[in-house]
Structures are given as C-alpha cells and as structure tokens.
Computed example of a mutant assay.
Amino acid sequence: MITVLITTYREAATIGLALDAFLPQLPAASELLVICPDAETTAVVHQYAKKFPRVRHVPEPERRGKPAALNLGLQAAQGDIVIFSDGDVVIGDAALAPLLAPFADEKVGAVTGRPFSSSPRATKLGYWSHVLVEGAHQTRLARDATGDFLLCSGYLFAARRSLIQSIPEDALAEDAVISHRIAEQGFRIRYAPDAAVFVKYPDNYADWLRQKVRSTGGYAQDYVRNSPFSMRSAKLEAQQGSLLALKFAQSPRELWWTLLLFVARLHLWLLVFWRVRVLKRPLTTLWQRVESTK
C-alpha cells in the first residue's frame, strides 16, 4: 500500500498540475491525500476526488504550518510507504517507479528524488537555482555510491511509515528531520536520480532569502544540528560546493553570478545564525510565503 501526501496552501492554480502528474503513475494499491486549509485549493481537490476515488482531502481546521499538516496526513495515511511532495511542484512522467524500487531492500528506510529547476538559466536567480540543484545532485550521487548518509529533498521523497512517528511542529526543514531520524534508527537513505521533480524557484532576492532562511534554518535547529549524521552546513558547503559551482559557469556572466552566489550564501548563513540560533524566532515568523515560486 502506497500513500502520497501532498501539502499545499493557497495553490489552487498549481495543485491540479501536481495531481495530474501523480495519478497516472500510482500503483493499484495506493491513495493520494492532500492536506490544505484554504477553500480555493480545497475546491480543486474535491473536484479531483469526485473523479478519482483514490484522491482524498484531509481537512486542516487551522493553519499551523507544514509540519503540523504533515502530521495530520501521517495520521490518516494507510500506506506502508509514504511519498511526500508539494502542491506547487510537478513530478516527472516516470518518477515513481525508480523512487519506490529501492524499498525492495529492507534496510532502506527512505529514498529521495532529484529536483530539477524549471527556472530560466538566463537570469541570475534562475542560474543560482541550477547551480544549487546540480550541486545537490552531485553530492547525493557520490554519497549514495559510498553508502553515506544523505538528505531527502522535500520536493519528492518516500519513506517507510513505520519509521516516522511524528514531526516536531516547529521544524523548519521537515525533510531534514525525517532524514536524520530514519538514519538514527539504522536505516539507509538512497538516491533515485531518475525520480525527477520539477521546481520553480524564487525569481527575486527577497523571496530567495525568505525561502532559504526557512529551509536552511532547519539545519541550525537542535533536531538536526545535534545528530551524529551530517551532510549540510556552512563549512561543508564551502569545502565541497565551491569548486563545483565555479566549474558550472559557462560564460563570464555566469562566473560573475557564481561569485555573487557565494556572497548571497554567506549572507544567508549569517541570517540563519542570527535568527535561528541567537534570536530563536518561531516557525510562524520564519516561514513566510513566497509568491514567485507559484
């Protein structure tokens, strides 16, 4: 039994695309649960539920953030394997089969897909997204080959339901928390590079910071920072990602954008240290909606 959990909020314009990509690929024994609180998105989900019995809306009486929404979905899920995704991304045409295949090994606790940027490389912010997703791809390939710990991408990953009790409701990076807790139980996380998911990234610096401070800030929280496993930090990013980013540039303009990205990432990590480690701002403050990714 497979359960797909999609969390979404005010994404009536994109949730249909997300569902259309999942539905043709779902195994016979599966369900697709959508957790959302707003009326507009819920109306679209109800339309799909009338046509497709495996689609079900999980009501979210009050909006308390993505971790709380995921906990509602986990409580309702009937599947042994749970696939996590978002309402503003689109999975590839043949993404689910490679995502699920590694679970034939009982020692595998989770499998992560591969994000692709659908933002234009010809713009600075679009170029940054291509650099970062390629860096994550190369890191996951290398760590998967050696059997090392690797992080799941919240845009598309699957995990054994029995290994996830609940997610702390103040977790800024729920994918990181789930990844670390699965690894801490002795299970391996695999990478499925053929399990593609297409993501639109922010197109302005203010939105970029809003998104990245929240997601990167999750690695400064105790749930992740105190774990014996590590894949992402400011130090590791500088050591392992700098050369790859420089090699990624194919023109003087892209090289200049790469140098600007180094400055932006330093700015980001300083903000994370100040807002998460020092000020300890709550999820409700740090999780700000980013419109340019819709």
Rank of each mutant, 00 (worst) to 15 (best):
S166Q: 15
A176M: 09
Q165K: 15
A158R: 00
D170I: 00
E174N: 08
A173H: 10
A192G: 07
Q165D: 15
A158P: 03
E184T: 07
R160F: 04
K200T: 15
P193L: 08
I182G: 14
P193M: 06
S162T: 14
V197I: 14
R190W: 08
I182L: 11
E184C: 08
R160T: 02
R190P: 00
A176G: 12
V177P: 08
Q185D: 06
A173R: 00
L172W: 02
S179C: 00
Q185F: 05
A176L: 12
P193Y: 09
Y201W: 15
A195K: 11
V177I: 12
P193R: 11
A158N: 01
Q185K: 15
A192C: 03
E174T: 06
S179N: 01
I164N: 02
A158F: 01
G186A: 10
A159V: 13
I164Q: 01
G186H: 12
S179T: 02
D170Y: 08
R160G: 00
R190Q: 12
Q165V: 10
D194V: 02
Y191E: 05
A171F: 05
A159W: 04
A173M: 05
V177A: 04
R160D: 01
K200A: 14
A192M: 09
Q165F: 06
S166N: 14
Q165A: 13
A196F: 14
R161P: 06
S166C: 12
A192K: 07
F198H: 14
D175V: 06
D170S: 13
R190V: 03
S179D: 02
D194A: 15
A195N: 09
E174G: 06
F198A: 09
G186Q: 11
P193V: 10
L163S: 00
L172R: 05
K200Y: 08
R160I: 00
R161N: 08
F198N: 15
V177K: 02
I178E: 05
L163T: 03
R161H: 06
E184F: 07
D175N: 04
D175I: 03
L163F: 03
S162I: 11
L163K: 01
F187D: 07
I178P: 10
F198G: 05
Y191T: 02
S162C: 13
Q185I: 02
I164S: 02
E174A: 08
E169C: 01
S166R: 15
P193W: 03
V199E: 13
D194T: 09
D170C: 03
E184V: 11
Q185N: 08
A159F: 04
A196D: 15
I182T: 12
S179R: 00
A158M: 02
L163R: 01
R181L: 14
P193S: 09
E184R: 06
L172K: 00
I167R: 00
